[in-house]
Design a protein around this nucleic acid. Structure first.
Length: 102
DNA sequence: GACTTGACATGGC
DNA sequence: CGCCATGCCAAGT
């Protein structure tokens, strides 16, 4: 039954995001995989964009497979650096050093 | 209900 | 992890 999809999706996604340890980051694909929706990585991003509406979650610890930060969200870089996440440049994190080993 | 859009992923170069 | 092309799925219009 796929009557409820967004709510469950949101709950699962946020549950995973919430478990990301400080100083580490996770990719959308990784989260999507953890919730059993590998192909829905984009949905993760959509949900996270609205995550503030559902509650406060460390959505800044989620980046895409290239380690690129959210376009247009300048705060994210400072938040990550404050947590000790190594940055490759202003818009990319060093995934090699800080990708979450779920 | 078809078309477009998106905080994406993966594989090839 | 630079860029290009293709695939995927849900939400919004």
């Amino acid at each position: 039954m796929n009557r409820i999809l967004d709510e469950n999706l949101i709950y699962e996604i946020l549950s995973v995001v919430e478990e990301i340890p400080q100083g580490k980051v996770a990719t959308y694909g990784q989260i999507a995989r953890l919730i059993g929706r590998e192909k829905n990585a984009r949905l993760v991003g959509k949900v996270l964009s609205m995550s503030e509406y559902y509650g406060r979650y460390p959505c800044h610890r989620v980046v895409n497979h290239a380690g690129r930060l959210v376009p247009g969200w300048t705060e994210q870089r400072q938040l990550l650096t404050s947590e000790g996440v190594p940055m490759k440049d202003e818009y990319h994190v060093a995934l090699k050093l800080c990708q979450w080993d779920s």
